[in-house]
């Protein structure tokens, strides 16, 4: 480095204490740290603890019952149907909204006219609350008001499309609404990711004569991995939480055919006055998320240290 001409060096500068380095930002981080610790970690532990008690309307930490709540939960038909619905809804919603979102993004990425307008229209459903979406689709799928009626009025008298009143397929009726709401957002996310890809990559693949669909599948999608991870995390958290859509569209019906775990938890906690069972169900939801998340996080972040 340059030789300084600042007189004879008198004293060696002391290294300042690490504790006070960036003090302002440390202070600013305190509320967030507290929220994370108390609300996320603390309340989770509190919930898990109380799921082992016979809490009814109020938490009753002293009435320890062990695994009773869990036994009851897994013996209950309604919970099993909820889990099954969530699995169907989750799998279909994840694959379909990613596929549809990606296809829409790829179409918009082809430098078309009115891109901004189309993007806004497709993103609009995302601005609606699930309750509004659910109600709108309840009307659209209602045989007397909606799609079935319209098609019949065109002359196809035998047309029947009534998913919300058919216990076998009701979850797919909810799925349609969920995808309608969610794929616009996926599209915008993926479109942003596509725009981040170097124009020269496309030129190179054109010079090499690689068709556009192959370029997307073998080159662009692998390059968009981080964006896909973000999209999947956001979609997946939406899937686990799905509640208001069901309430607005079917209220869990017909019968209990369209129940979902989040609805089960809310109802046990606030309507049936069975906190212990509700907590047990929500603990099971947390567990199922962790079962997916931990191996993924291990692959994603654990591998980095080694290579």
């Amino acid at each position: 480095m340059a030789v300084t001409d600042a007189g004879p060096a008198t004293e060696v500068a002391k290294r300042p204490s690490r504790l006070f380095k960036n003090l302002a930002s440390k202070i600013a981080a305190v509320p967030m740290v507290l929220v994370a610790l108390v609300i996320f970690v603390g309340c989770t532990i509190w919930t898990i603890y109380h799921s082992f008690t016979r809490s009814r309307l109020l938490p009753a930490p002293e009435k320890w019952v062990g695994l009773d709540n869990y036994e009851r939960l897994w013996g209950e038909n309604r919970w099993l149907i909820s889990i099954e619905n969530l699995a169907i809804y989750g799998f279909c919603s994840l694959t379909l909204s990613l596929t549809i979102g990606f296809v829409l993004a790829a179409l918009l990425d082809r430098k078309i006219r009115f891109e901004n307008t189309i993007r806004t229209i497709i993103l609009y459903p995302f601005a609606l609350s699930f309750v509004v979406t659910g109600l709108a689709w309840q009307w659209i799928l209602n045989p007397q008001l909606g799609l079935q009626n319209v098609v019949r009025s065109w002359g196809w008298e035998s047309f029947a499309f009534d998913p919300l009143n058919n216990a076998e397929i009701v979850i797919f009726g909810i799925l349609i609404a969920g995808i309608w709401q969610g794929s616009g957002f996926v599209m915008v996310l993926l479109l942003a990711g596509m725009r981040g890809i170097d124009e020269d990559i496309w030129k190179a693949s054109r010079v090499e004569g690689i068709p556009a669909w192959k370029t997307y599948i073998f080159i662009v999608i692998p390059m968009m991995r981080p964006v896909f991870v973000t999209a999947i995390v956001i979609i997946a958290s939406g899937i686990i939480k799905v509640y208001d859509l069901v309430v607005a569209q079917t209220s869990g019906g017909p019968g209990i055919a369209s129940e979902v775990p989040a609805k089960y938890v809310i109802e046990k906690m606030f309507f049936s006055q069975n906190l212990g069972l509700g907590f047990a169900a929500s603990t099971m939801m947390l567990l199922s998320v962790l079962v997916v998340l931990i191996p993924w996080a291990y692959l994603e972040f654990g591998g980095k240290k080694n290579g």
Partner: peptide
């Protein structure tokens, strides 16, 4: 004609290599 039919090869400023493929993969993919 399409770029691939013109009998040209092209090299770009940003290299434009396919990042998920090995060197060999990059050279042989086309």
């Amino acid at each position: 004609e399409e770029p691939s039919e013109r009998g040209i090869g092209m090299v770009f400023q940003s290299y434009a290599l396919y990042p998920q493929m090995t060197v060999e993969g990059n050279m042989s993919f086309g």
